[in-house]
């Protein structure tokens, strides 16, 4: 019997260790006085999760406090965001890694119990990842113009990683602006969508840069354009969609952005401490190297400017979702 108890204790202890039991190391600073909780509104393993864990690691040094990452997946990030909006006990020590799901979610999920702009303070946009308009290597289209002309004649298909993803909405935006005949083909994540594109089952995709960069370099996919405002340093020869200058595409600027937000009651001193810490984090080599690996550019906006950007995004995606007939 003793042995059994010993084994059970061992199992329980190692379980606790793995869960990452946290011990406070808060110093004499005004804020944080407690562990900081970084909520990831997606399941472990995605870009948001990996980025959050990297940032939490660096933020820990800068804040001299524990930063505990907590995954709260569900309904395209709206479950975790809704819970943050409701407030609660630790709200002055809770931050959340927001991404396009924050603005798109507001457009496609019915009856959200929160306002995606008013209910939060916006701390800092950390990175921007451009999407790339890619076609299979054996596709007959060499330019965006070729593609649009053909897509107006015949039906085209584009793959995406799930309803409401930035990849999906980019495709819908492209379809609306260029007035082409395109059908969305959904997959469960980019991993499942990629083979369909590589194998030529779909005609085009607006994939995130890190997913397709190596395939573009190896020649398996052809990049027609990037969706960011400026050309990407990773694909300097590929034009931006805005550069095309036709088919209303000058309005097509979108990136997958990632940034930290908090509850609207997040104290001013905490906001100041966070902006200072994040500014240092974003200068660190580890952060810049990581961004480079993702094919991302460091984010530019924080505070009010970040908030304004979010407000515009919410409005834009609402229009696109309406035109595409998605949900609501």
């Amino acid at each position: 019997m003793k042995k059994i108890v010993k084994a059970a204790c061992l199992a329980a202890c190692s379980g606790g260790l793995v869960l990452g039991a946290s011990v406070s190391t808060a110093s004499a600073n005004e804020w944080p006085t407690n562990d900081v909780r970084l909520v990831v509104p997606y399941a472990p393993g995605g870009t948001t999760d990996v980025l959050s864990r990297r940032v939490a690691d660096l933020l820990q040094d800068e804040l001299d406090a524990n930063v505990v990452v907590e995954n709260r997946p569900g309904a395209g990030s709206t479950v975790a965001t809704g819970r943050l909006a409701r407030g609660g006990r630790d709200v002055d020590h809770t931050i959340l890694m927001a991404s396009p799901g924050h603005t798109i979610g507001a457009a496609i999920y019915p009856d959200l119990a929160y306002d995606p702009v008013k209910d939060f303070v916006f701390l800092q946009n950390l990175i921007d990842i451009p999407n790339v308009m890619v076609v299979p290597a054996d596709s007959p289209f060499d330019s965006v113009n070729d593609f649009v002309e053909a897509a107006r004649e015949q039906g085209m298909t584009f793959s995406h990683s799930g309803v409401g993803s930035s990849i999906h909405m980019s495709g819908e935006l492209f379809k609306t602006l260029t007035e082409t005949n395109m059908t969305a083909v959904p997959f469960a994540g980019s991993g499942a969508a990629l083979p369909a594109l590589l194998g030529g089952d779909v005609d085009v995709s607006f994939e995130n840069m890190p997913t397709v960069l190596s395939h573009i370099r190896s020649g398996d996919l052809r990049a027609l354009a990037v969706t960011s405002a400026e050309r990407s340093e990773y694909l300097p020869d590929v034009p931006t969609l805005a550069e095309i200058g036709e088919y209303n595409l000058d309005q097509f600027v979108t990136t997958a952005w990632f940034g930290l937000i908090a509850h609207e009651s997040f104290p001013q001193e905490a906001q100041d401490a966070m902006s200072e810490a994040l500014a240092s984090v974003m200068k660190r080599e580890e952060f810049l190297d990581f961004a480079e690996q993702l094919g991302a550019e460091p984010g530019q906006v924080g505070g009010e400017a970040f908030k304004e950007f979010i407000a515009q995004e919410v409005e834009r995606w609402q229009e696109v979702a309406e035109q595409a007939g998605i949900s609501q």
């Binding site: 399941a43 472990p44 393993g45 995605g46 870009t47 990996v50 990297r54 994540g189 991993g191 990629l194 083979p195 890190p210 960069l213 190596s214 395939h215 370099r217 190896s218 398996d220 190297d289 990581f290 690996q293 993702l294």
Partner: peptide, 24 residues
């Protein structure tokens, strides 16, 4: 191409170390 969530995380680990899985 990551076939499931776990391999997606392992892909992340490769990328953190400056390696991009694939033919290259």
């Amino acid at each position: 191409i990551p076939g499931d969530v776990i391999t997606a995380i392992i892909l992340g680990a490769f990328m953190v170390h400056g390696l991009t899985p694939g033919p290259i």
